[in-house]
Amino acid sequence: MHIALFHQYHHNPDCAATCRHYTFMAELVKRHQITLITSNAWESKRLTQLYDWVPPGVELVSVPVPYHNKMGIGQRVKAFGEFAVKALLAGRKIAKPDVIWGVSTPLTTAWAAARVAKYHQVPWVFEVQDLWPSFPIQMGAVPFKPAQKLLYHLEKSLYQSAAHIIPLSMGMEQYISSLGIPAQKMTTLVNGTEVPERPLSFTEREALREKLGLAGKQVVLYAGTYGRANDIPMLVQAAELLQNHPQIHFVFAGQGFDEPLLQSAAQKQQNILMLPPQPRHQMLELFSMAAVSLVSFIDLPVLAANSPGKLFDSLAAGTPVVVTNPGWTKDLVETHHCGWYSPAGNAEALANSLLMRLQNQAELETMRENAHSVAQEQFDRLQMVPKLERIFTEAVSRK
């Protein structure tokens, strides 16, 4: 089977980003022909050179479209549109695939995938990584009502034309169902991660902390994008409230819009350490050394349905997670007792919960064990590959 993947932001393990599709392609290419149509946006941002840019055997079609997390709205819209057009033209030139796999975000990539599928007269599968256009609209990036209406119409038409839909959370699936899309047309495959057989031991974790000058500290980790939606100002405020508790130290590893804010805070506050972005293959070690990790977002309804990669990485490392949004992630950490919920935007509540929970070592150890167990049972990407493969096979057979 020839599968053509349209994904604007391909990364590999040398990058500071999740590698969901790298893992999937590496497994699928053992049995199928894979063509990846992507931009070159991340290739220059590799932090190491330990991995092939694409898994061996995957055919790469790379189009030059720049992108970075600090872009303004206008620059992002230009990048989205430019990639969609170039991907559409490139997709028409490739050998006819059996099925097309279109990954949103942004929605324009899914549109290009759908158009190329129509051109080749083959089915396409729509992977929904974030709810677009709901997310940019709720963020205020699309203020004009006619444009919102047009985007919502495009979104629904893509759901309708896809042979199958892969949401990344049950919240996304419920939203798509509310638009009249039948449940049998959807299979939820959460973001997931690569799960090690065992988390690092206490001795190994302490060695990592010592390496960073954090020996004996209880590390509160935020690892990921410092985006407008991630509520970084609230985390800085929580750290400020805990300055008189020197055993608690906040570590930030990432990049993005709020980086200047963090740099300023790190200069003023003794309990903040900023690390540069880390390559993917080193991220689980970073999560392992933390007492707890933070998965924070601002209080937008659409964000209750998201499927953040840092959540799964933390669980795989056996590190409890604090989530700040209601929805399925809150239910997850509370049901499996592998973390806790603290309301979005409330720095005082977060600081108080950290101060209380980090004093209870027995509870933290139980949470560590539960975190790794639930990751093994539910969030291992390798276990998702047979389901993904079956989705493609059935889409082709129905056609």
Score class of each variant (00 low, 15 high):
K86S: 06
R198Q: 15
P56F: 07
E377W: 07
L5Y: 09
H249G: 02
E394P: 00
E365N: 09
C338K: 00
L382T: 08
A114S: 15
R115Q: 13
V122Q: 03
A253V: 07
E206N: 03
A95L: 07
D299N: 15
G224E: 09
R198T: 15
L89F: 11
G213Y: 03
Y222A: 03
A16R: 03
C338L: 10
Q49F: 13
A147T: 07
H337Q: 15
A141E: 13
V385E: 07
E348R: 14
P279A: 11
M172S: 01
P66W: 01
Q138Y: 12
L88V: 11
N230Y: 15
I73E: 13
Q49T: 14
Y67V: 01
Q361A: 14
F126I: 06
W132R: 10
V116C: 00
Q218W: 10
C338N: 02
L355I: 11
L50E: 13
S397T: 05
Y152N: 14
V54N: 02
T193L: 08
A347K: 00
K211S: 09
I298L: 14
S178Q: 14
A265K: 12
S169W: 14
E363H: 03
V396M: 08
R198V: 15
G180M: 09
A371T: 10
T319V: 13
F392P: 01
I3P: 04
L350K: 00
S264W: 04
H337G: 00
V374T: 14
M172F: 13
G171T: 05
L311K: 05
L388V: 08
V85C: 01
P136K: 11
M172E: 08
L189S: 01
H21L: 13
W53K: 06
G74M: 01
I94E: 01
Q174R: 15
A351E: 10
D380C: 09
K268H: 05
H336N: 08
P343I: 14
G192C: 04
A362C: 06
A347S: 15
S104I: 14
V103E: 01
K185P: 02
L286F: 04
I248H: 05
I166A: 04
T48Y: 09
G180H: 07
